[in-house]
Design a protein around this nucleic acid. Structure first.
Lengths: 192, 192
DNA sequence: ACAACTCGTTCACTTAAGTTAAGAAATGCG
DNA sequence: CGCATTTCTTAACTTAAGTGAACGAGTTGT
């Protein structure tokens, strides 16, 4: 489990054994059951997450309806916007599956970053990378139809389609569950 | 003009006079005419931009059609994903208006960041902020209809509707120009 | 085992976006 | 100025997504 975290970090900076044990001493690892809510609407939070195993999702409740906007699975890191902006959360974060993750809070990160300038660099590299990745994702979303987005998802994150309920996938694709059902039937028709 | 840049920077870190003059010595400012292309599809680039005055846009050409996905106006910074990923660009960047901006390249930034750790911190803060902001924008896009997105745009960036051609706005909203025309007529109907 | 609930699918119908085409309005240029 | 080009709008028609309702499969709890 620790190795998964260190593998991830090694993509950005290299750590000495001392630094590794210092990191481990922070006691970051948590195990959470499916369905657990990590963050509620209206809450203020300072927590960032890194998923080691399992799947968490972000969803809004608008007009009484759940709108899922993001999934985070193995080796993905998440700092919710409300943590950056220091505002109450407008969304929920909950576990789609039993999940193992690290939880770190921003006070701790400020401290670690000033102690180890390396971490500052990692944070910059990571957020630059995530920003670039998300920009591409957003562009793809804007320039394609729901059907194309679904086909795209099959290519890029085939696991999600298996492990996540359809109604959550639907809003992730920007449509209603009924439309996703129909769209899938349409694709099957075309193939034959 | 320099002051605009320093005002922006002061939101993240404070600079000494020496640091300011060092920055100015880098000769970052550029003036570009409307219609100028800053980046072409297929090109590799190391340039980041910060808009002081004017407006630039990102667009793709897909099936021979222009798809505009982003606008950057006064006091907005842009590091294209292709710079971060070191891959050839899949899109164009061009000037919607006569524009004054700063151009910096990533080699230069690496140098500056190691010389002034402050800059490293600013880069992290900035990309964290932009990531959070973009996440919210993406969520809003996913959870709303074209009409809601247009009404939302009127609230949040009313200037864009004035200064940018309709067909560019349309793809920015994820629809065709004809649909935007119709949508606007529909909104006017409702009001009366 | 049975009732209650959730989830996915299907259907009929409504609404809005895509498509194609035509014309009006605005812009640029010789 | 007039001509060409680009941009915006309108319209008729097609296609796909939204809506409301119903049904069956699977799950949960008692």
């Amino acid at each position: 489990m620790e190795d998964t975290l260190f593998d991830f970090i090694s993509k950005y900076i290299s750590l000495t054994e001392d630094e590794k044990s210092e990191l481990l001493s922070l006691d970051l690892f948590r195990s959470v059951k499916q369905g657990t809510t990590l963050l509620e609407e209206g809450q203020k939070s300072k927590n960032s997450y890194f998923v080691l195993k399992g799947c968490i999702r972000i969803y809004y409740v608008l007009d009484g309806e759940e709108k899922t906007t993001a999934f985070y699975t193995e080796m993905e890191a998440l700092t919710p916007p409300c943590v950056v902006n220091k505002t109450p959360s407008e969304y929920y974060i909950s576990c789609v599956e039993d999940t193992i993750l690290t939880v770190s809070n921003s006070d701790m990160e400020v401290e670690t970053n000033s102690k180890f300038p390396k971490f500052e660099i990692m944070c910059r590299l990571l957020s630059e990378e995530l920003l670039a990745k998300q920009q591409i994702d957003f562009d793809e979303f804007k320039t394609s139809s729901p059907e194309q987005r679904y086909l795209n998802l099959i290519q890029k994150r085939p696991d999600l389609i298996q492990r996540v309920p359809q109604y959550q996938l639907a809003s992730y694709l920007g449509i209603k569950p009924q439309s996703l059902s129909r769209l899938r039937a349409r694709i099957l028709d075309k193939k034959s």
